[in-house]
């Protein structure tokens, strides 16, 4: 891959207008390359979630430029006609509380992301099963989400994020509901996936225990990048 998979240039986001306007992000520049795991930290209201939403194409920037996988997605306006297709094919999401669909078992939760993309159910389930095995929750494939432990559910959620082999994985506090040991396991898993699939991973986190698992930490404050800190060797 020639350039970064996620490229954010002078990205701005303002909510509201006039005197009541709130500037959530101001001139943010960020690049995440293939195989790189970047952490995003900052106090509440610093703009972490807004930045994640903009990169996920679920909110529209106010100014700047956003590229995913080398393709300009937003510059003045959306440049991609079908944003959901873009998310489906190129972006994987991992949530704080796993967000598995409660009415599908583990393997169907993972396979769903593929069937939405038109893959037949048998093929999708085969790939989902293999991915669950890879993430060491294959034995729980037929369990409903309510029967899974927090760690198991988060692994299933990671499998769902990975099943379409996305170029970019966005994670919002993926370890917040896990104990320290399981949090490190999940982060190691993400690092492994980033290396093996050459995916760019951006993780919003407050969890200092896992800061050492990132290639880079980016700190946001008042909508601006305050500091970029490479991983200690």
């Amino acid at each position: 891959m020639a350039g970064p998979l996620v490229q954010v240039e002078k990205l701005c986001k303002t909510f509201g207008a006039g005197e009541t306007a709130v500037r959530a992000l101001a001139d943010v520049d960020l690049q995440v390359g293939a195989g790189e795991v970047v952490g995003l930290k900052g106090p509440s209201g610093s703009g972490k979630s807004t930045l994640l939403n903009l990169i996920a194409c679920i909110q529209e920037p106010t100014a700047g430029k956003l590229s995913i996988g080398g393709e300009t997605v937003w510059e003045g306006h959306w440049r991609v006609p079908d944003l959901r297709r873009l998310r489906r094919e190129r972006i994987g999401f991992i949530f704080q509380f796993h967000n598995l669909l409660p009415f599908l078992n583990a393997i169907d939760n993972v396979a769903l992301a593929m069937t939405l993309d038109g893959v037949d159910r048998t093929t999708a389930r085969q790939r989902a099963g293999a991915l669950l095995d890879y993430l060491q929750v294959g034995k729980r494939a037929s369990a409903m989400p309510s029967r899974l432990s927090g760690g198991e559910a988060q692994r299933v959620a990671i499998a769902r994020a990975l099943v379409n082999r996305p170029q970019v994985i966005l994670a919002d506090e993926p370890t917040a509901a896990l104990d320290s040991e399981r949090a490190r396991v999940v982060m190691d898993l993400l690092r492994q996936v980033a290396r093996e699939q050459q995916a760019a991973i951006l993780v919003v986190t407050h969890d200092e225990k896992i800061f050492d698992r990132f290639d880079r930490m980016v700190a946001l404050r008042d909508g601006r990048i305050e500091q970029e800190q490479p991983r200690a060797a």
Partner: peptide, 16 residues
């Protein structure tokens, strides 16, 4: 509501 939001986030089209 949350499930539908999740479906949209992971790219489910409107017809789904």
């Amino acid at each position: 509501l949350r499930e539908i939001a999740t479906l949209k986030l992971i790219g489910a089209p409107d017809r789904t």
